[in-house]
């Protein structure tokens, strides 16, 4: 039995008096893909943000790669180099071109040399079909292209875990597939460990090694693989799947 890469233990999250996450527990092994499903407002994104320190949690504990998370800013700054995150709104830096967006982390945070990083970045850009856009500025790119660059920006730090927060939610339908394919490829050929929040049910069904179904800030179902989609146990999950219409 190897220890899990990520262990979340009795996590509780409040915004002032509002209780957002109730007793969240789960484990994620290296190479696994966990999808977080649930209606909007169920706390999926908040949970994801707790896992890289963008939100603080009030009780419970997280262990990442054998290290207990202390929630100190300094430690988060270290851990974030190993926990990549991609956002719904891409959030590329508009003042920097594609290459500068991607290189900022490896060069300034990890202090690696440009010569060492550049070949890796070129390869990543080729993988996502963006090799010709290294000098473009974010404003010149479409939503799907921006999101692909945002994924490369996170991957350039060589993270052990990737968090995807509804990364296709603001994309035009024809762009969605490209981005999902990239994530699928990451899981299949690179065995990247991932936590994915998504509303794309077909995609979730294909990619998941584990599904967490959240509603009202509680985990309602926790199932391996496709079982969630074929035999949802709770009525809430059944209703949720029925409403997703896929």
């Amino acid at each position: 039995m190897s220890t899990p890469l990520l262990h979340v233990n009795h996590l509780e999250k409040y915004y002032q008096k509002t209780h957002i996450l109730h007793d969240v527990n789960f484990e994620l092994n290296t190479g696994e893909v966990l999808t977080l499903l649930g209606p909007s407002g169920s706390g999926k994104s908040t949970l994801l943000r707790c896992l890289n320190g963008l939100e603080a949690y009030q009780q419970g504990s997280i262990t990442f790669d054998g290290q207990a998370v202390t929630q100190k800013p300094k430690q988060w700054q270290q851990l974030r180099q190993q926990i990549g995150m991609v956002f719904q709104s891409y959030d590329l830096f508009p003042n920097r071109n594609v290459l500068e967006n991607i290189l900022l982390g490896p060069l300034k945070v990890q202090k690696r040399t440009r010569a060492a990083v550049l070949p890796e970045v070129q390869q990543l850009l080729e993988q996502v079909g963006m090799a010709d856009y290294a000098n473009a500025y974010p404003r010149q790119l479409s939503g799907g292209q921006k999101q692909r660059i945002a994924i490369v920006r996170a991957l350039a730090l060589k993270p052990k875990l990737m968090l995807f927060d509804e990364v296709t939610a603001s994309l035009d339908p024809e762009m969605v597939r490209d981005v999902l394919n990239i994530i699928r490829q990451l899981a299949d050929s690179h065995a990247m460990t991932m936590l994915v929040v998504t509303h794309e049910m077909d995609f979730a069904k294909q990619i998941s090694d584990q599904v967490l179904f959240l509603a009202d800030g509680r985990i309602r179902e926790q199932t391996p693989g496709k079982q969630f989609f074929e035999q949802p146990q709770t009525e809430r999950a059944q209703n949720f799947l029925a409403s997703m219409d896929f």
Binding site: N52, G53, L54, W76, Q77, Q78, R80, Q81, G84, M85, F87, S89, D91, L92, F93, L104, G105, K108, V109, Q110, A150, R153, A154, L157
Partner: peptide
């Protein structure tokens, strides 16, 4: 969001 994107890459 810009701040969070920067934090997320470990700045």
């Amino acid at each position: 969001h810009q701040k969070e994107a920067g934090q997320a890459i470990g700045l």
